[in-house]
């Protein structure tokens, strides 16, 4: 993990510094004289040569200090930890929606291969992946918030209670989960088809077990590892790619934090957020690898 973190840190730092743009311009009036701009640059520390800035930043990182946001005026770690739970909740909610849609559709499509039900399921999940999620999000807002008034159009309110969070989460989780269900549904279908052909499934049927038991215990549990791999990938994608949904639904998550910081060239936040998100995703993949062993005892890590 340490080499990956170091690599991400270097890439994050130099990529953002190589792109043009001056954070100081966001602090002074457009007509301010150059001395004023220089004073702000000095205060932000961006007047130093790039390697000096990198050395300072890396020195802080190894001591657990990711710096202070230029704009929020608070430590980067604090800004990130305030945003992370929102993104986690969104990703978990999105994954719950995706699994709720994808697993039944994938299993039923496999059981009723090439039937009308299979085709409807395929069309349903492909419609999800074909729609731009910002557009789908706006449609949900228009329908459920503006026309029906059932759910809030945007935002989370801290301290609003569990009911408030769930109400705020339903639409964005749907907008994130539905398009992402396609991959899981397709993997479930093909993995189930593969397993259903196996002898032990035929044996279970021949023993007279109920179809539900055959499908859920004998087929699905043996088909789960490839599905788990895809679930891991999709979750990572949801974590890293929820930025559009966070923007559309005005959720103060990591994605919005990073986008705002990129727009304003808030270097410490961009660098810190990229580094922490990369570590989070590496950690999550590690958990998925460990889950393989849980679901398939043949796999062992020494």
């Amino acid at each position: 993990m340490i080499p990956i973190a170091l690599l991400v840190a270097i890439i994050a730092f130099f990529l953002i510094h190589l792109s043009p743009g001056d954070p100081a311009t966001f602090f002074v009036s457009p007509d301010a004289p150059p001395e004023e701009l220089e004073r702000v640059r000095e205060r932000l520390g961006v007047d130093q040569p790039i390697f000096v800035q990198f050395g300072r930043w890396l020195g802080g990182v190894v001591q657990g200090d990711l710096g202070v946001s230029f704009f929020q005026r608070r430590p980067v770690i604090q800004a990130y930890l305030a945003a992370l739970p929102v993104t986690l909740m969104l990703a978990v909610g999105g994954m719950a929606i995706a699994l709720t849609l994808a697993l039944p559709i994938g299993i039923i499509s496999a059981l009723k291969k090439d039937s009308l039900v299979d085709k409807i399921g395929t069309v349903f999940v492909f419609a999800g992946i074909s729609m731009p999620n910002f557009w789908f999000g706006m449609l949900l807002i228009l329908l459920f918030a503006v026309f029906l008034g059932w759910l809030p159009a945007q935002g989370f309110i801290r301290g609003a209670g569990l009911g408030g969070y769930v109400r705020s989460l339903i639409l964005p989780a749907l907008a994130l989960g539905y398009p992402n269900s396609a991959l899981i549904a397709r993997m479930t279908r093909s993995s189930m088809l593969e397993v259903m052909r196996q002898d032990y499934v035929q044996t279970a049927r021949a023993k007279g077990l109920r179809a539900f038991v055959v499908t859920s215990r004998h087929a699905f549990m043996n088909a789960i590892n490839p599905i788990l791999t895809v679930v891991g990938l999709v979750f990572a994608r949801m974590m890293a790619g929820s930025v559009v949904i966070e923007t559309v639904f005005n959720l103060p998550g990591v994605g919005r934090l990073v986008v705002n910081s990129v727009m304003r060239r808030d270097y410490p936040v961009i660098q810190g957020a990229l580094l922490l998100t990369a570590l989070l995703i590496v950690g999550f993949n590690l958990i998925i690898d460990l889950l393989y062993a849980i679901f398939d005892p043949r796999i062992r890590y020494d």
Partner: peptide, 24 residues
């Protein structure tokens, strides 16, 4: 264990996030 893990993650997320400030 896996289901409980996800549930705990969700609850911890809510707790972490909500803990920042109370509804005024």
């Amino acid at each position: 264990v896996a289901v409980i893990g996800v549930a705990v993650m969700l609850v911890v997320s809510i707790g972490l996030w909500a803990g920042g400030a109370a509804e005024p």
